[in-house]
Amino acid sequence: MTTQTKSRLIVFVLSALVWWALTDIGKIEEALIGVIVAAIVSLLAGKFLLTAEKPGRWLRRLKYALIYFFHFLWEMVKANFHVAYLVIHPMTPIKPGIVRIKTKLTGEIAQTVLANSITLTPGTLTVDIDPQKQLLYIHWIDMKSTALEESTEQIAGRFQNLLLEVFE
């Protein structure tokens, strides 16, 4: 089975499941229309989901993905209380600046997940990515340092090692 066929199969199953979840499952017509629509979707746009397959131990990667998910939820709760403190404080004690950090991740999906996680965690917002040089430009609302290594450790150190285990 080639990669493209596998990708189409995954898209077919996912879209059929979403259709059945969103409509009334009891009627047979609705279920049949869901199968037809899922087939059309997977034929038209199915090949973009999996582009390159990596050999790897699926269980291990799944375990690290779960650990990453809960770590991310905890960081996000902390981020919200931090922003709430900044907003309620009468003087809004902010010290903003844009710094650059260097990541160890190389894949496109891994870099995108890292950038999105950085946006949703305390005090940081991704402004731009340079995928070739592996640089990320971060707007930091409470800046602690301007040196490359130290800011990388402060911002991306929370996620980078877990994402390395998941994606590479």
Partner: peptide, 9 residues
């Protein structure tokens, strides 16, 4: 904003 320290971008 006026209080911004650096802009490395």
């Amino acid at each position: 904003a006026p209080g911004t320290k650096t802009d490395q971008y």
